[in-house]
Design a protein around this nucleic acid. Structure first.
Lengths: 214, 214
DNA sequence: GTCTATATCCAGATAGAC
DNA sequence: GTCTATCTGGATATAGAC
């Protein structure tokens, strides 16, 4: 009698090739722009012909979708690795810096995740759920730091989005807007402290980074 | 002897057709996305075949370039029509509202003017000069309102860019971020008043809207 | 799984008749 | 200025042999 192997070597190899294709796709879009991705070129980069890619992805949009999910997962992991102090002034700056740096370091990824300029591409529900989860974590996190309410949250995201957009559009590779992050967060905190009450959850009851992620 | 006509009716007609083509192009990109513009479709919309467009524009990029210039001119004119009071709290809000509304009302135009996601398209020097001029006017204007220095200007533009980006990406057609403009400008003014001195130029010496445009 | 060959469709741009 | 016809090249996707 033949025992069923506990590892499926074929599936593992399939996954590895998929990952290789995605990595090549990232390199291509970083070099030539998100919209310029072509299956022929992508296949050539991994030593295949274009039709072979269809053994790994159903369509070009499926590749974009996998990249969209990867990008969001990368952001989530980077955020999970952050250490927080419970001090809004410190933590909001770390969060903001994380996001703006993440945006600035890869314009193509920024375009895919946040600008959606690929004609006809919409992320699948599963991939989109990742993006929703990130926003939800941010909401919880800011709430834990004492920043509550839709308006306060929207103002924060607008500020971060603006710093990212300007950095990418007008000083790619530089730090002209990155250097404004601390200033911007101070401005934000001054403001919401003067208009709303800001009460970080006290130390004993504070949510941990892990809990905030739920 | 034949007098030279003072009007060139042929040139006028040519200009009119050019304008008609551009108007059709705007309608197309608003309906189907900036990147989806095709010469065949555009030509059909104005009752021509694709090759005839080449009598009016040298290339597809030349059409984008003309649209880029038109968009910037529209923004410039809208700004020139604004009335200013000299009060930074009032004027900065009017400026901000103008810009965010301008962005929100036409996503395709926003993408063309501020995001540059068309592969291979770069505005011609003449068209780009318009964009530079707008930024320069903003700089002068803010200076006249007492907001000076690169950092202060960059923070302002980031805020406006962020409100626009979020409004377009997450609430197109709505006003969720538009409603935050006054709040954001107040936040900004509170901040720079507490960190830099803000001294609007006194009434007698204040630059007029026309002067600020130089 | 990968290939060749191909289907199908589209694009921007040009030549040259009228 | 506008047209037809065409060039050239690209794309995604599929069929079917190996």
């Amino acid at each position: 009698m033949l025992d069923t192997p506990t590892r499926d070597r074929r599936a593992e190899r399939h996954e590895a090739t998929r990952a290789e294709i995605l990595e090549a796709a990232w390199e291509l879009v970083r070099a030539e722009g998100l919209a310029a991705l072509s299956l022929r070129e992508l296949a050539a980069k991994v030593g295949m012909r274009a039709p072979s890619l269809y053994s790994y992805f159903d369509s070009k949009h499926a590749i974009y979708d996998a990249m969209f999910a990867e990008g969001n997962r990368a952001l989530m992991e980077r955020r999970a690795a952050l250490e927080f102090t419970g001090d809004p002034g410190v933590d909001l700056k770390r969060l903001a810096r994380l996001f703006v740096q993440f945006s600035a370091e890869d314009p193509a990824r920024y375009q895919l995740l946040f600008q959606r300029t690929i004609p006809g591409f919409e992320p699948s529900p599963e991939s989109y759920a990742l993006a929703v989860r990130i926003l939800d974590e941010t909401r919880r996190h800011l709430a834990a730091l004492g920043v509550r309410g839709q308006r306060a949250l929207d103002l924060y995201t607008a500020m971060i989005a603006g710093l990212s957009a300007q950095q990418l559009a007008n000083d790619p590779g530089g730090d002209r807007w990155l250097r404004l992050i601390d200033d911007a967060v101070d401005m934000y905190l001054e403001h919401i402290r003067s208009t709303h009450a800001v009460h970080p959850i006290p130390r004993r009851a504070r949510v941990t980074s892990k809990e905030a992620r739920r």
